[in-house]
Computed example of a mutant assay.
Amino acid sequence: MQAYSSARDEFEGMAPVMLDANENSLGSVGPDNFSRYPDPHQRAIKADLATLKGVSPDQIFLGNGSDEAIDLLVRLTCTPGQDSIAICPPTYGMYEVAANLNDVRIERLPLTPDFQLPANAPAILAASQAKLVFLCSPNNPTGNLLAQEAIETILANFRGLVIVDEAYADFADAPSWITRLAEFPRLVVMQTFSKAWGLAGLRLGVAYASPALIGYLNKIKPPYNISAATQQHALAALANAPQLPEMRAELLQGREWLGAQLTQLPIVEHIFPSDANFLLVRFRVDATATYDALSSRGIVVRNRTSQPGCAGCLRLTVGTAAENVQLVQALAEIGSQNPVA
């Protein structure tokens, strides 16, 4: 396949007179000028990220959220109506959506009751014809890291690409799988600016992989998939990267406080261990009714009770200190109205 050659591929940078891309030479409607197409290869962001993460720029793909990278990886490797991917439910729902959109079958390897990979997962995957396996770690919606040894065994034996989705890795006390890219050529690590960086509204996801694989993703992506506004704000965030540990520490302190308070509520049955900025909580009372009661009080959480292994569970994002207090008070009030027998 020949990739589309955009005007900004044929001429990099700026010149005194730019008349090659049929842009509006008079500027933009509105207060900010975005009349010029953005860098289609996001070179400045990749240079800063490469320094921050200890990789080379040609190992980085930037997408319109991680969802774009998920979709492109499925399209790159799978023949519609013929191939399959593997997922480990309960997990992030976009893997299945991308497979369905591309007419790709799904092989499911359910996690154990403590939300770890089953002991036979490496053997099952070694015999599988799936082109990709998605491993979300820390996992969404459960919050826990998957065991390193299990992922290593899969990487050593699975014949397809192993995608480790680290959307919440900035909250975990474990090294990123980015540090193992040279060791495992079929490893792809996904991260995002939406969580710890607090830039969900920008829609900027990152995939780290071998230069050859990144080259294929760049060939099939839309030419200008990351807007100029997103690139500008991402560069500003990277320039302020030293603020990230402080925000992380505050959120983790909030998670610890929230967990301690929730354990004291009679309606709470179990709080699952979390390496992310949320807690999966199983309730002794009806979880959907509890979700509705919170919503009626202006507090929105995520109802996960229909997900495999998550019966009776709500996913609670760690909020500000004031929001955490409001959540606990509301749950205490709901519990007093629905006492546990």
Rank of each mutant, 00 (worst) to 15 (best):
Y95T: 08
I45V: 15
L331G: 01
A47H: 11
N22F: 05
N218I: 03
L125W: 03
A234P: 01
D58A: 12
L204H: 00
F193A: 08
I214S: 09
V74S: 10
I220C: 04
Y224L: 14
L294P: 03
V340C: 05
M190A: 04
A330D: 02
G201R: 10
L252C: 06
E183A: 14
T290E: 11
M94V: 13
I271Y: 09
T263L: 06
L213Q: 05
R297L: 06
Y37W: 10
A321S: 14
G27S: 05
S274I: 04
F134Q: 07
L73R: 11
P38N: 12
V188C: 11
S6V: 07
H270K: 15
M94L: 13
A169F: 08
D286H: 10
L294Y: 08
L213V: 01
K46C: 11
L238I: 01
F184S: 11
R180F: 12
A156R: 15
P122N: 07
T192D: 04
V74M: 04
N64V: 08
I178P: 03
F283N: 07
P222D: 11
E149Y: 02
P308N: 04
Y4H: 03
S25Y: 08
P339S: 11
V104T: 10
A127P: 02
G160L: 01
P245I: 12
R304A: 15
L161W: 01
A69S: 14
D170N: 06
P90F: 00
N218W: 07
L202T: 05
A212L: 05
Q329N: 09
M18Y: 14
A293N: 06
N225R: 15
A207L: 07
P90V: 07
N33F: 08
P223Y: 00
S194N: 12
S66W: 05
A156Y: 06
P245Y: 13
E107C: 06
L52N: 04
N64S: 12
I299K: 09
S28V: 09
Q148S: 09
A321T: 14
A21I: 00
G298H: 02
R282A: 09
P222N: 08
V97H: 02
D71H: 09
N338M: 03
Q232P: 00
V104L: 11
P339K: 06
L161R: 00
A209E: 08
G312H: 08
G335P: 02
Y216A: 13
I226Q: 01
S56A: 14
Q148W: 09
V325R: 14
P57V: 14
V164P: 10
G198E: 01
A311C: 03
E152Q: 12
A229G: 00
G93Y: 12
L26K: 03
P118K: 07
I87L: 05
E152S: 10
L280N: 13
L265N: 10
G215Y: 10
F11T: 13
G143S: 07
Q129A: 11
L155M: 13
Q232K: 10
E68N: 01
M190N: 04
D71Q: 15
A289N: 12
A99G: 10
